[in-house]
Structures are given as structure tokens and as C-alpha cells.
Design a protein around this nucleic acid. Structure first.
Lengths: 153, 153
DNA sequence: GTAAAACCTCCACCTAAGTAGAGGTCAAGT
DNA sequence: ACTTGACCTCTACTTAGGTGGAGGTTTTAC
């Protein structure tokens, strides 16, 4: 009474099974493989076969993505995992500490920006050259300040 | 002694002048025009000429971009500005309140994610189906729960 | 044994926010 | 007048993270 996609005998997963179990589209799994985030064995008919702990690896990828980590960074993080054994709690903690730092930094940057914006609301900033939010470390005024007085906006 | 790009007579700006004054590349200005975020008059020789308050509009766009607002949203925000007069402090405040709400929401989402991650560090979550960070409202388990017991990861 | 479902590769396409270059025209200073 | 720099359009390319289809093979179920 088993459904077609859960054969009892093979302990390996087909790409369809991995997709169904992980919630990641088949096309995305192939894409990840092309990018080097996951890998597969091939059977005699050139079809992908995954060891069962690939499921955990894909879950790790998905989780990191939800944290906003780009695939390239996820890849380098995964590269630090030992290839010979499935990742342990230890491994996961190491990666997640790293991603937490990234997340923290993004939160801090956004918060700083919000504070700037809060300071600016009500001041009509945008019409003035002195607005800190408007002139944030990028050009404007780098071609001399003199003539600017002649044609004010 | 005026430099070549600040003619005293014309009150209109060329695309090069607007680029220099706003800190936005010429190609980007043309891109914005193609997207409908800014507009231009053409002179007899088909060259773009901008009214001086276009400088303020571009500054608005840049500022919103720094807040992480996508151009499409900036465009709809700009569409709410009256076309017949330059934007006032009032207008700017309305838009920035709106963008602040957006920013706040992004910060909240990231913060919630970080809290999740903090709760997960040390629990070895990723190896369990019950991890709240791993199973965040997306598929997984939607094809029936029964057979899942047979092939545990 | 055969039909259907699943799989394969490769290529094109998508959004976002532009940049770069080709080939041609316009404007400005001397 | 002429040269040079600024401008024009159009197409192609970029990164990130994929999706979809064409055309062909393999596996599975009956």
C-alpha cells in the first residue's frame, strides 16, 4: 500500500523524491547541483541518486536562504562541512552562528537607516543639500562648491 | 570663470548636468526615464532637457533606493505626487512615512528570524522535522504523513 | 510488452537594476 | 570650418535565483 514514490528497498532518493521531501523544485535541485551546492551519484541510466542525508543538506540550504544568505555564501559555508560524514549539531551550530552574525549586521544597518529616516521626517530634508539621508557618502558636490551658489535648486 | 557645465543662462539641465549634480550615472537616468520614473523634454536636436526640480526628484529616488525600496515601488510612490508643482515638504513626509513603514516591516521580519535562529542554536534543530526555522510555513509533509515513518532521515 | 510517468540535457526566458559598446548626430569652442 | 565632447538609440551583457519547454531516454506499473 506504499505510494509510488516511497519504495521500501532503495535507500537512495531520486531527484523527484528529494524534491517532494525537501519542498524544493526539481529544477532548483538541478540548479543547485550545477552551482556546486549539492552533488549526486548517477545510476546506470544516468539518473541522479542521492544519499539520504542530502535531505538534511537541502534543508540547511533552504534555511539559510530564508535567513537571506545568498547561495554563493551558503556554498562556501557548506564547503567547510566535512565531506565524509553527515553534518552534526556541532556543524549546524557553527554555521548558524555565522549566519546570525550576518543577520545581525543587516538588522543593524537597516535600523541605522530607519533612525536616519526618523530624524529626517518633518524636516523637509530632501530639499536641502545638508540632509544626512540624502547625501550619504556618495558624490554630489565633488566638482567644486563655488558655482553651485549660482544655480540653486 | 564658470565651468562649462554650469551655464548661467539656461535654467534647464542637460542629462550630463543632471548626472553630475545628482550623482546618478547618465545610463541610469535614461534607464529611469525608460521605466517612467522621470521624464524629459527634448530640444530641437532631440537631446534631453530637464527642469531644475528634476534634481529633487532624482534625489528622492536615490534616497528611497538607499532605504531598499525597489524602483517599481518608488515609481508608484512618485505617481502620487502632483504633476503640476514641485514636491513640497508635505509630499516628502507622506512618502517617507510610507517608506518608513516598509523599512519597519523589513526590520521586524529580520528580527523575528533572528530570534528564531537564536532559539535554534544549540538545539540541533535542523536534524529534526519539528524545527520551527526549518519548516516555516512551506511544503514538507503535504503529501501525507504516513509513509514518512518508513524512511526517516 | 507496452504505455505512462519520471528522468535526462540544453537552451531560452524571467526580474532588478543597471552598464558597455556600436554606430551615428549635435553642440560648443577656437 | 572643424574638432571634440556630449549626446542619441539600440542591442547585448551582467548577477542572482531560478522556471519552462523541446526533444530524447529510462523506469515503472500493469
Amino acid at each position: 500500500m506504499r505510494s509510488a514514490d516511497t519504495p521500501l528497498v532503495t535507500r537512495e532518493l531520486t531527484v523527484g523524491q528529494l524534491a517532494a521531501r525537501s519542498g524544493v523544485a526539481i529544477t532548483a535541485l538541478r540548479f543547485y547541483e550545477a552551482k556546486g551546492l549539492i552533488s549526486s551519484q548517477r545510476n546506470a541510466g544516468n539518473q541522479r541518486r542521492y544519499p539520504r542525508d542530502m535531505l538534511r543538506r537541502v534543508a540547511l540550504i533552504k534555511t539559510a536562504q530564508r535567513l537571506g544568505i545568498p547561495l554563493a555564501s551558503i556554498q562556501s559555508a557548506l564547503d567547510t562541512l566535512p565531506a565524509d560524514r553527515p553534518p552534526t549539531t556541532e556543524d549546524w551550530n557553527r554555521l548558524s552562528e555565522c549566519w546570525k552574525a550576518d543577520l545581525d549586521e543587516r538588522i543593524n544597518r537597516l535600523t541605522a537607516l530607519r533612525d536616519q529616516l526618523n530624524g529626517c521626517i518633518g524636516c523637509g530634508c530632501l530639499s536641502m543639500d545638508a540632509c544626512p539621508l540624502r547625501n550619504w557618502g556618495d558624490s554630489l558636490g565633488e566638482s567644486g562648491a563655488g558655482p553651485r551658489l549660482l544655480d540653486q535648486d
